[in-house]
Amino acid sequence: MAGFGEPGIDTVDAAGLTVGVVTARWHGELTDHMLERAVAAADACGARSVVARVAGSVELPVVAQALARRYDVVVALGVVVRGATAHFDYVCRSVTDGLTRVALDEGKPVGHGVLTVNTIEQARDRAGLPGSAEDKGWATTVAVLDAALAVRGLARTTQRVGFDA
């Protein structure tokens, strides 16, 4: 993230919604904290959370899909740090494409809270630790709940929109 232009949404009223959170164990010091922040954000928004853990970020999409079939929204959390090989690119593409597919196939918002960074220091600065510039666990959860409320609002709209309305 560029560090500017954030919408500044701290919480939303998501009472009655359930957030499925799937978190990678890789880089556990960071992902454990991101998970804590995601659950805290769900609580602050009045939503319930259900947590699942997986080994690494590549495993996130399949569990995200299982969660999306049962719950209102999904948050996927992980950390992928660039190394000396192309593996970083394959992992990032796989995770992003997989999570996008889950959201579209299941018709549910899926939050992409996977940090894709060049250095572990960049990850620490985004993981919501004390002194971090960003808090992706919190921000991703609030964003996905906000999207669910938008989708819910559209479902209630009976007015037609578009050129042929």
Rank of each mutant, 00 (worst) to 15 (best):
T140Y: 01
A147E: 10
A66E: 12
V62D: 13
N118H: 11
V51R: 08
T85S: 14
G128C: 14
R101H: 12
A52S: 14
I120W: 09
D135E: 13
L60R: 05
A139W: 11
L145D: 01
P130I: 11
L149M: 10
L67R: 02
V81G: 02
V95M: 04
A148H: 00
R70N: 12
A86F: 15
V58D: 05
L145C: 07
D72F: 01
A133P: 07
G113C: 08
S94P: 01
L104M: 15
S57P: 09
A148R: 02
A66T: 13
A148L: 01
V51K: 05
F88W: 11
G98R: 00
L145F: 01
R152H: 10
C92P: 04
A76K: 00
R48E: 08
R124H: 13
V110W: 06
L129G: 08
V144K: 01
P130R: 04
G107Y: 03
G111F: 00
G56R: 04
S132A: 14
V117E: 09
E121D: 13
R93L: 13
A143D: 06
L60Q: 07
D146F: 13
N118D: 14
L115T: 11
G131E: 13
A76V: 02
T140M: 03
A139F: 09
T140P: 01
L149F: 10
A86N: 15
D72Y: 00
D146K: 09
S49P: 03
D135T: 07
P130F: 06
G128H: 09
D125K: 08
K108N: 09
S49D: 04
R101N: 14
V73M: 06
A139Q: 15
K136E: 07
E134S: 15
T116D: 10
R82H: 05
P130C: 12
V151A: 11
V80L: 07
V102C: 04
T119H: 07
V91S: 08
K108T: 07
C92R: 05
A64T: 04
A143V: 08
G78S: 08
G131Y: 10
T85N: 15
A133Y: 13
D135N: 14
T141A: 06
Q122C: 02
A47F: 05
Q65P: 03
L77E: 00
A143H: 08
A84C: 09
V144D: 05
A150P: 03
A139M: 15
R93P: 05
G107W: 09
L99H: 03
G83A: 13
V54K: 11
G46V: 04
G111I: 01
V79Q: 02
D105H: 15
V74K: 00
E59R: 00
V117L: 12
K108V: 09
E59I: 00
